[in-house]
Amino acid sequence: MDYNTLIVLMGLLSTGSLLGGFGALVSLKGENLTADVAGHGVVSGVVVSKGLLAVLGAAWLAVPLLWVCGFASSALTLGFIFWARSRGYSAGAAQAMAIGLAYGLTLVLMSLVQGYGAFSTKGLTTLLLGDAATLSLGRILPAISMLLGAGLVFGLFWRGLMNWVLDPQSTQLQGQSSALALMWIVATVAVVLTCLPALGLTLLVGGLTLPALAVRPWVRGFPALVIGSAAVGGVFATLAGWLSAGIVPLPTGALVIVTLGAVWLLSMILARGVSAVRMRRAA
């Protein structure tokens, strides 16, 4: 296996695990579109950063501006969801509004800065579709660091996290809700930003939801669901990357999602079969 393939597979392992584990939390909270919202928020921030770069003309500012603007715009978009929910809107309605507004804002911003100075939309396609095949060590290090950090945080705080996901109202009464909500926004944006290079915005939601859906019928505990989803996400994303590298000539990101989709389908069929057999034995 050559160095580049190894880097891509390491990137997919860390990205798939991170998305799978975080996705388990997202699906338990009933906020499957949260990452999509954060991703849409990131895109408008990226456009702003590119616009600023065109005005300032300082190439060395490109990466810091990208992170700062992407993080800020994504956090603001997620903050909008919390605000809308506090005004009585359902999670689905709040997420739909946030996605619509972020998308609309992105198009408006692009129209405003298009053709201005050295503004270029180069890189936006990668942001939308991902480009796992071109992952480098520098681009996968954030995902590996995030995965290790998330594992440590989960090991220390899983019970508090479980309480918040299970019954946020109770956590609010215990006075911990605001801090957790803030941490949730920061974690969502960080996960989205670190996973975008591999899968891109359009495939991110699949990477988040499919592992947890595949694991759910087979586990009964919260830690088992989160760890199992991380394992399934990581292992099958890596497998898809390996297939894409030499056996199946298809885009890596798309193959990752198709593989995870197949795992979910197989898991669902098996779970129904097992359930039917158990019911027959019980009768």
Binding site: L28, G30, M162, V165, L166, D167, Q169, R216, V219, R220, G221, F222, A224, L225
Partner: peptide
């Protein structure tokens, strides 16, 4: 009914 009883917990 304010709790999600399908939550994977004991």
């Amino acid at each position: 009914d304010e709790i999600d009883w399908r939550f994977p917990g004991k």
